[in-house]
Design a protein around this nucleic acid. Structure first.
Lengths: 142, 142
DNA sequence: TGAAAATGTTAGCCTAGACTAACTTTTATA
DNA sequence: TATAAAAGTTAGTCTAGGCTAACATTTTCA
């Protein structure tokens, strides 16, 4: 799973949708990511083969425990990077989120560790959006 | 040309090789990027079609004025990001370079501007490696 | 409740960007 | 200087990750 931008985006989207609605649907994932339904079906099949999601034919998609763990980590890294960009570069929220989305799939473990260290030193608390409030615009989180 | 990681890497490599030796060869590009010679031939053909390089059959590869301008900008952005990572996160040079290499192809113009602003505020001078010294290990610059 | 709309799937196509095998041309050297 | 080695090219293959068209299933609601 490491270092696969496309799959990480699908997994992260499933995670966000599930946090909002308890499960996700092909059509919602397609809309969120701006891809076609068949692309989603194909990707979800791969996530299933990897043991990250459970699906029922013509039914809903839910994360397995493993999938939830991995996707939570992906999303938390996204948040971490996002807050780092806001704090260090004073980027507005939307720009920070956009760039975090691009960066999260490519930067090294050491750089992530360095960002965590930076946040700690500057006493910046990194908490999930979900702990803060009830948002519904998932696109803003990707 | 915008936002094409692969082509940007080829162009940047041509730029670095040319700065070191006055021109570049398929085989050197292949070694630097860790790809096969046919992959380089194909990529260079595309760069030629875009007007970025000049080639002679079975001969050397050189940048056009346009190509030099674009590749210098790519490389300078790489350096900018690299120094930002070193300064803000205290990343060692090799880690900073590695992550700059990944980030340079994906981050937004606004984020680049914010980094420039950061460097200025902190009085960090961004100069090319070439102005500093005579290095030959190009891999370290990518 | 049955037909239309929405949703999900399958099959097949396309492109980018890698690769190997085999060939051509150039360079180096015995 | 002839030939082996090195460098470059061409042709064809593969994979990932998109897409559309067509079909299957489920849901909605008149």
């Amino acid at each position: 799973m490491s270092n696969n931008e496309s799959m990480e985006m699908y997994l992260e989207t499933v995670y966000l949708l599930e946090n909002d609605h308890g499960h996700s649907h092909v059509v919602d994932i397609a809309k969120t990511l701006g891809v076609s339904k068949p692309s989603v079906t194909k990707a979800i099949k791969q996530l299933k083969d990897l043991g990250y999601v459970h699906t029922e034919k013509y039914g809903t998609i839910t994360l397995t425990d493993k999938g939830r763990e991995v996707s939570r980590e992906i999303y938390e890294n996204h948040r971490l990077i996002e807050l780092f960009l806001q704090h260090s570069l004073d980027l507005p929220a939307d720009e920070a989120s956009y760039n975090a989305c691009k960066m999260e799939h490519v930067i090294s473990e050491k750089m992530l560790a360095a960002i965590r260290n930076y946040m700690e030193k500057n006493s910046i608390e990194v908490k999930s959006e979900f702990e803060k409030e009830n948002e519904t615009d998932i696109q803003n989180k990707l």
